[in-house]
C-alpha cells in the first residue's frame, strides 16, 4: 500500500543552518501520526516543506506516491490540505465564512456550491447562521471550525495539522479535538499532526515521532504514552516533563472530552 505521506532523508535549511536533519518517516493511509518536540525542533517546518511554504529542502517527500516538487497543483490540493495553528491568522479578514468556503470550490470548478457550503458547516458543527459573518465576528473555536471546514471542502485524503488546538483555551480545545476525531472516523482520513502537547497525541494519534534539534530521535506507538516507556532518554524526559506540567491539562482535557459525550 502506498503511504499517504512518506518523507525520506529530509533536510531543511533556513539561511545557513539545517533546522531539519535527515528525517524519515511515513504515514499509512488512515493512520494518525504525530510529530512531537519542543519549540524550534523543526516539527512545523516539516509540514511547511510538504506544502511548499518552505522551499529550501533536500531529500524526498512523497504524497500518495507522487514526489513533491515545485508548485501546488490541483491534484495535490485535492489530496492534501493543511490546518494552521492560529485561527486568527489563517482566515482572510475581509471575507465572509461563505466566501472563504466557496473559494476552493471555485478554484476547482465544483458545482452545487451553496449546498456544499451549508452541508460542510453543519458537518463541522457551525451554525449556518454564521455563514455570512466576517472572521472578526467569530470566536476562536468557531474560526478554527471554519478553517477545518475549508480544509475539508475538497475532500482530501491527507490532513496536515499544525498545532490545531494550541491557540485555543482548554474547553474549546476539547471540542475541536472531538471534532477532529469524528471527521477522521467519518471520512477515513490520514492525519499528520504536529504538536508539543502529549495529551493531544494520546487522544488523537496512533503513532508518534519525537523530534529533537531537527532529528527524529524515536518513533513509538501511542501505547508508549499510556505506559510511559520510551527507549530514548530524551523522549522519556519529554514525557516526564509533560506529566509534571501537563498532568492537569490532561486531566482537564479528559474531563472535558468525557463531558462532550465521546
Amino acid at each position: 500500500m502506498t503511504p499517504a505521506l512518506s518523507i525520506d532523508h529530509l533536510f531543511v535549511r533556513y539561511g545557513r543552518t539545517d533546522v531539519v536533519k535527515d528525517v524519515s518517516f511515513s504515514a499509512k493511509p488512515g493512520e494518525s501520526y504525530a510529530l512531537v518536540g519542543e519549540s524550534g525542533s523543526g516539527k512545523s517546518t516539516i509540514l511547511r516543506s510538504v506544502v511548499g511554504m518552505v522551499r529550501d529542502w533536500r531529500g524526498k517527500i512523497e504524497v500518495d506516491g507522487m514526489p513533491r516538487q515545485g508548485r501546488i497543483d490541483l491534484a495535490f490540493a485535492r489530496h492534501c490540505q493543511m490546518i494552521f495553528q492560529d485561527p486568527y491568522a489563517s482566515l482572510h479578514p475581509r471575507r465572509t465564512v461563505d466566501a472563504t468556503l466557496l473559494e476552493p470550490l471555485k478554484v476547482h470548478g465544483i458545482r452545487d456550491r451553496a449546498e456544499r457550503v451549508v452541508q460542510m458547516m453543519q458537518d463541522v458543527g457551525l451554525d449556518p447562521r454564521f455563514r455570512f459573518r466576517f472572521p472578526h465576528q467569530l470566536s476562536g473555536g468557531q474560526r478554527q471550525r471554519v478553517a477545518i471546514a475549508r480544509a475539508l471542502m475538497l475532500e482530501p485524503r491527507l490532513l496536515l495539522l499544525d498545532e490545531p488546538t494550541s491557540a485555543l483555551d482548554v474547553s474549546v480545545q476539547a471540542e475541536i479535538l472531538n471534532l477532529l476525531v469524528r471527521i477522521r472516523e467519518e471520512r477515513n482520513l490520514t492525519y499528520v499532526l504536529v504538536t508539543h502537547s502529549l495529551p493531544v497525541v494520546s487522544f488523537l494519534c496512533d503513532r508518534l515521532g519525537v523530534l529533537r534539534h531537527g532529528r527524529l530521535v524515536e518513533e513509538a506507538g501511542v501505547s508508549a504514552l499510556r505506559t510511559g516507556t520510551f527507549a530514548e532518554p530524551y523522549s522519556q524526559e519529554l514525557y516526564d516533563a509533560s506529566l509534571g506540567a501537563g498532568d492537569r491539562d490532561l486531566a482537564a482535557l479528559q474531563e472535558a472530552t468525557r463531558g462532550m459525550g465521546m
Binding site: F76, A77, M82, A89, H92, E103, R150
Partner: peptide
C-alpha cells in the same frame, strides 16, 4: 490565509 489559498491550488 494566503498560504491556505495557495494550498487550494
Amino acid at each position: 490565509f494566503i498560504a491556505a489559498v495557495q494550498l487550494q491550488g
